[in-house]
Simulated scan of single mutants.
Amino acid sequence: MQHILNLIRGALIGAAELSPGISGGTVALIIGIYERALHNADKLIKRKFAQVEWLFIAFIGLGMVAAVFGLSGIISTFVAENFSLSHSLFAGMVLISVWVPFSMIDKQDRRNPKYYLFALASAVFIFIVTGFTSNQVEDPNLFFVFLAAAVAICALVMPGASGSLVLLMLGMYEPVLRAVSELDIAVILVFMAGALCGVVFI
Rank of each mutant, 00 (worst) to 15 (best):
S84R: 09
R9V: 00
P159L: 10
G160D: 05
V79M: 12
F118C: 12
L12E: 03
L170C: 10
A149Q: 04
G63W: 01
G131M: 07
R47F: 13
Y34N: 04
A195C: 12
D109W: 11
L71R: 09
F191I: 14
L117Q: 03
A41H: 00
D109H: 13
V157P: 04
I153W: 13
V176L: 14
P20K: 00
G131T: 05
V98L: 14
N135P: 06
V52N: 07
M158R: 00
R110G: 09
F125R: 06
F78D: 01
G21W: 15
V190E: 02
L44F: 07
A148C: 10
A123S: 14
T130S: 12
A50G: 03
L189P: 01
G73R: 07
A193V: 11
N82L: 09
I128Q: 04
M93H: 01
M93C: 15
R110P: 04
I74A: 15
V180P: 08
K107N: 08
N82S: 11
M93A: 14
A150D: 14
L12H: 09
I185T: 14
I75S: 05
D106F: 07
V199Q: 11
K48H: 04
R111I: 03
V190G: 03
G171K: 10
A193H: 09
N135F: 06
Y34R: 03
V151L: 14
V187E: 08
F146R: 09
F191R: 12
V52P: 13
F146S: 05
L38C: 00
V190Y: 05
F146D: 12
G21Q: 07
G92I: 03
L38K: 11
L156I: 12
K107T: 13
A28E: 00
D42W: 02
C154M: 13
V157G: 06
L44Q: 05
M64H: 04
G171H: 09
N141V: 06
A179S: 13
R36N: 08
A16S: 00
Y173M: 07
F132C: 05
C154H: 03
N112G: 00
